[in-house]
Each structure stands twice: as C-alpha cells, then as structure tokens.
Simulated scan of single mutants.
Amino acid sequence: MKNNLSISVPKLIKGIVNGEIPALSKAISLVESKLPIHQKWAQELEVAFSKENPNTIRVGISGVPGVGKSTLIEALGMYLVEKGLRLAVLTIDPSSQQSGGSILGDKTRMDQLAAHKSAYIRTTAAASTLGGVAQNTRSSILFCEAAGFDVIIVETVGVGQNELEVHEMVDALLLLQLPGAGDEIQGIKRGLLEVADALLINKADGAQAPLAKKAQQYFKASVHGFRPRKNGWEPPVLLASAIENRGVKEVWQSIEYFIRLQKKHGDFELKRTAQKILGLHRLVCQRLEASFYADKKVQNEIPDIKRQLTNGTLSISKAAEILIDGFRNSHKKSL
C-alpha cells in the first residue's frame, strides 16, 4: 500500500460503517502495513471498532493442504449468502520467501463466491507468523463486523500444530480431514483435534466414500476419548463432499447449534473476553520482539554472539542473557 498522506481516518470509519468495500479493504491494508504512519492510522481505526458485535459468528476452518478448505468455503459461502447472510472470508495464504506476498490467491479459487454481492474475500500473506493466521487477523475481523458482515470465516494456511492460534480468535473451529483413518497419516496433531469444535471428513465421494466412513468412525472414537467439555458438547464428526455440495447444510447447522449452546451456558461471551486477553498478550510479545531486534546495541552484538555460539564458547542461555541485558541497559540510558 502506498504512503498516501491524504487518507482520512474519519472518512474511512464512515465508509466502513456504511458497508463500503473500498473503505474496508483500505483499512485492512493499513493494519497489514509496517509503515509507522499507516500503523498510527490503523490504531485509530482499531479504537473506533474495538466494541465487538455479539450477533456475528466467527468460524475458523483449518486442515492439512489439499484437504479442500477453499472448495468447502465456496460451497458453504454460497449456501450462506443465498440464505440472505453477508459473508466475509479472510484467507491466510502461505507466503513467498522472496516477496513476502501470498502465493495461492484464494479469489481465483472461489470465483463464484467472489462474484457475489454479499460476499467479501480478502487474502493475506502469512509472512513470518507461525500460528497459521496473519498477525492482524483480529483487527480485520472487527473491521468486517463493523462493515455489516454477519459471518466471518478465517481460512488458515494448513500447517498442522501451529494453527492452534486461530482457535484464539473464532467462535467455532472446524477441522477438515481427508478420507482415510489415523491422524498420524494426515499429520494432524492431537492438540488441534482437542480444540476443534467440529470435524469434517471432506471429499467423501466416489471411491473415497468407504474410506471417509472409516475415518469418521476413527475420529468419533478419538473425540469421545477426550476430556468432556463443561457444557457437554462433544464435537461431531461430519461427512461432506464440497464438490457435490453434499453435507454443506449440515455443517452450518452444526455450527449454529454449537453457538446457541455456547450462548445458553454463557460461554460465548467468556470465550470472546478470554480471546481479547490472549490477543493482548500476543501483541505485546510481537511488539517487544520487534523492538528488541530493532535495537542498535542488540544488532551490534548479534554477529559476535553468533560466532561464539558457533565456536561453542557460549551457551544459548548465556547468549540470551547478554542480549537482553544489553537491550535493557540501552533503554535505561534513554529514559
């Protein structure tokens, strides 16, 4: 995004509230930008839209690459917009190591949904974030809700265990699986299975149908063995074929039922509040880390520290202590 000094934050706020897509896209670009002036404007927008909408539904969709996340999202998305709902899809693409930009470009994979007037698709590069979601996804969700979208879907990059972070910013997490039995075969870690609110065996069609049934039984047994949740919810294991548009309606019905149960027991609001605290913690860590590595004293010491580590004359813990002490001392002098 170009450093456009003519940007008016109040005008952007008004545009977002009026549901104007250009204003929404510009706001998301601001939170993604690393330019100081853009970050300042982004913070003003975040303050304006810090109050959450309890009537929206945030859904995370995760799973290994090739499981059919984008195909399912398009089928589910078309079902939702045809029901009269407004849908925003925030897709997190793997990043190019050279450019830092997204590789796949989900609008090209959801052409029918992208063309619908009630849908908005935004692709963001995952960059250096390890959690399967982009660093500023939380703000993007709030902006989309302020723009009047009823449902926000967050599609993650599909890297397994590291995607646990998406659970910290959605109301329901749907984990997609391929036909076949055994999470060890699919590279899905137990931690992700435990936090999923529903599991879906996708591509349950044709010759894959018997394998999908077998996988369904396997994961039902796995889920049943987890510690029961306080509200009595046991994540369902569903079957669907996004290509044949079968099982899509049942997926949404399951999500809606889960949200109703959460609200009935008071867990919905508690979860969103806890997510804010977790978001604060992560943001503080991110900004402290960025400040640490931008510090001149740290930058000057790192080459020598690396040499000593390579030569075996310095331990990792001592190296960290030296760098942190140097960082603290440089900031004490500036006070």
Rank of each mutant, 00 (worst) to 15 (best):
residue 243 I to M: 10
residue 254 S to N: 08
residue 217 Q to C: 01
residue 201 I to W: 10
residue 264 K to A: 12
residue 242 A to N: 14
residue 272 R to I: 02
residue 178 L to M: 15
residue 201 I to K: 05
residue 237 V to S: 06
residue 247 G to T: 07
residue 207 A to Y: 15
residue 268 F to R: 11
residue 225 G to V: 00
residue 180 G to S: 09
residue 245 N to K: 15
residue 261 L to W: 09
residue 179 P to T: 09
residue 193 L to W: 12
residue 213 K to C: 04
residue 235 P to D: 02
residue 206 G to S: 14
residue 246 R to T: 14
residue 278 L to D: 02
residue 264 K to F: 12
residue 265 H to A: 09
residue 186 Q to W: 06
residue 191 G to L: 01
residue 229 R to K: 13
residue 241 S to E: 06
residue 212 A to Q: 04
residue 265 H to M: 07
residue 187 G to M: 09
residue 252 W to H: 10
residue 223 V to T: 07
residue 276 K to C: 00
residue 197 D to H: 14
residue 195 V to C: 07
residue 283 L to I: 00
residue 185 I to F: 14
residue 226 F to S: 01
residue 194 E to K: 07
residue 220 K to R: 10
residue 284 V to R: 07
residue 231 N to R: 06
residue 207 A to F: 15
residue 243 I to W: 04
residue 218 Y to I: 03
residue 259 I to R: 12
residue 273 T to Y: 05
residue 277 I to Y: 09
residue 263 K to C: 05
residue 256 E to R: 10
residue 246 R to F: 11
residue 216 Q to A: 07
residue 180 G to R: 08
residue 211 L to K: 13
residue 260 R to L: 10
residue 225 G to L: 06
residue 188 I to P: 02
residue 213 K to I: 03
residue 236 P to A: 00
residue 253 Q to I: 08
residue 250 E to W: 05
residue 221 A to D: 07
residue 232 G to C: 01
residue 233 W to S: 00
residue 235 P to K: 02
residue 179 P to E: 04
residue 204 A to G: 13
residue 229 R to A: 06
residue 226 F to E: 01
residue 185 I to S: 04
residue 240 A to R: 03
residue 196 A to I: 12
residue 195 V to K: 14
residue 284 V to D: 01
residue 267 D to G: 06
residue 222 S to Q: 08
residue 230 K to C: 02
residue 266 G to F: 13
residue 234 E to N: 03
residue 249 K to D: 14
residue 205 D to M: 13
residue 231 N to H: 13
residue 254 S to L: 06
residue 209 A to Y: 15
residue 215 A to D: 05
residue 183 D to N: 15
residue 201 I to N: 07
residue 257 Y to T: 11
residue 213 K to N: 06
residue 260 R to F: 06
residue 191 G to M: 02
residue 256 E to Y: 10
